[in-house]
Design a protein around this nucleic acid. Structure first.
Length: 435
RNA sequence: GUGGGCGUAGCUCAGCUGGUUAGAGCGCCAGGUUGUGGCCCUGGAGGUCGGGGGUUCAAGUCCCCUCGCUCACCCCA
């Protein structure tokens, strides 16, 4: 295959992207709706920002020294020569929107958006993926950190998930981090020759990455490296303690992880990540977030605190599959019209049923009774409404239950809607009676 | 960017050491006393065996290249 087509010339979805067809698409959207209900009940309002921004928004916010901006961002000059970038993560865009519009503080926003990164696809990782997220601008209180973590945790639990864990850490702030980084770089410089090939040359650009390196060489060095959690200033230490207390108070289990590090420059203080224990694949991070008290300023606003998280919808769905929860059970039809008498009845009856608030569909192309009944069955409809020559001549419609054992009956065309409603009630009653 | 695995009907896959018109299950379509779905039976449609080149009397089966998918590293949701 070449040029975005298969070898027969038919185009296909780009590498790392996928089409979601019914009923998978239904499940995806249902998860978004769940999230909407969950966060709106906690005071968050939807924010929608463009899928592309001036590239500088991400360069300034996320920083140059990480893979997302450095080598994964879709960046291009448009026809006017403006440097634009497809949104690689959610927070920078939302904060840019805040700086531009200055909504009243505190501003609690949520979003569900596609993110694009030119990564090599693998299990549970795509070039276009989707995140559910929240951002709160204008609150420094550690109790908000607890709320934000709760929002994520309660959502996961609400999906029915139970096999996941929470790690939290702190990135310090401008008071304590610079001094710590200096110490860390000094320490690493003293062990430069012992680091892995990659970090031997890169440790100065992003020293905290080395702490996260999985290679044995780096691990041997970092065991005794200075830890940021031991060098937090008084305010950052107090903030972290308050968060831990709050999580304890809510009964949310967590692990304090000195090695929890993120590549984005904007993070300060609280950092957290939920990982699934049920996902077999390597990519098991469900949700990552943290505080970014310096980001608003970096994007041209006044110094204003902020915090948020992003949760991968695709990953959450994989976790749901792995745990056997949140099944796909799309709604079925109420009625399916079968017309073998020329279609004159079906073309009016189906719209009338829908106007009456019923979920209805019909067959086309004048197919046989058997074929139309098959479609009716496959549609999941509760009843089939059958119109043959006999019914067409007498102005009646046969109401045939498809999901229960009841008998079919012929009713006047004028009372079909009532008959369908009665059948729905009867079936619902029978179902309730069985369970 | 690096490495491994795989590419045969819409889907899941068989096709042994290269040899006649490439198969199965599911799905789809049409029939099974001339008006009724689900089960069952019968029949049918549907494949340039990812693409290109090479070896050979002969390749889905071997070799090379290429595209794609997939898994892992890196990083991340």
């Amino acid at each position: 295959m070449a040029g975005g087509t298969d070898d027969h010339g038919a185009p296909r979805a780009p590498t790392g992207t996928r089409d979601l067809l019914w009923p998978e698409s239904w499940r995806f959207e249902t998860m978004v709706e769940r999230f909407r209900a969950h966060v709106e009940a906690a005071g968050y309002g939807l924010v929608q920002s463009p899928v592309f921004e001036y590239a500088s928004v991400f360069r300034r916010g996320i920083g140059e020294h990480n893979d997302v901006v450095g080598k994964e961002m879709y960046e291009f000059a448009d026809r006017d020569g403006q440097m634009l970038a497809l949104r690689p993560e959610g927070t920078a865009s939302v904060v840019r929107a805040y700086v531009q519009h200055r909504p009243v503080l505190p501003w609690k926003a949520w979003y569900a958006a596609p993110l694009l990164r030119h990564e090599r696809p693998q299990a549970a990782r795509y070039r276009q993926h989707h995140q559910l997220g929240i951002e709160v601008i204008g609150v420094a209180d550690a109790d908000l950190d607890v709320e934000v973590i709760w929002v994520a945790q309660a959502f996961l639990a609400g999906l029915g998930l139970s096999d996941y864990s929470l790690r939290i850490g702190s990135m310090g702030d401008r008071t304590c981090r610079p001094g710590y980084l200096e110490q860390l770089v000094g320490y690493l410089a003293g062990h430069e020759g012992e680091l892995c090939d990659e970090h031997r040359v890169r440790y100065r650009a992003n020293p905290m990455r080395v702490l996260d390196c999985k290679r044995a060489e780096c691990r041997a060095v970092t065991v005794d490296a200075p830890k940021l959690l031991d060098h937090l200033c008084g305010d950052c230490a107090a903030h972290l303690s308050r968060v831990e207390e709050g999580l304890d108070a809510l009964g949310i289990p967590f692990d304090l992880d000195p090695g929890l590090v993120r590549g984005f420059d904007y993070y300060t203080r609280t950092l957290f990540e939920f990982a699934s224990g049920a996902i077999e694949a390597a990519q098991n991070a469900l949700c990552g977030g943290g505080r970014y008290d310096g980001l608003v300023e970096m994007l041209g606003g006044d110094p204003t605190p902020g915090i948020g998280f992003g949760m991968g919808i695709e990953r959450a769905l994989v976790a749901c599959d792995a745990e056997g929860v949140f099944p796909a059970a799309p709604p079925a039809l109420d009625a399916f019209v079968v017309d073998t008498a020329g279609g004159e009845v079906a073309r009016v009856l189906a719209p009338r049923l829908r106007e009456a608030g019923l979920r209805a569909d019909r067959a086309f192309d004048g197919r046989s009774m058997k074929a139309q009944m098959k479609l009716a069955d496959r549609s999941g409809a509760t009843v089939a409404l059958i119109v043959g020559p006999q019914e067409a001549a007498t102005g009646t419609v046969v109401v045939r239950p498809l999901r229960s054992g009841g008998d079919q009956e012929a009713v006047p065309a004028s009372s079909v809607v009532d008959a369908v409603r009665a059948a729905l009630v009867a079936v619902a009653g029978a179902t309730a009676g069985r369970s």
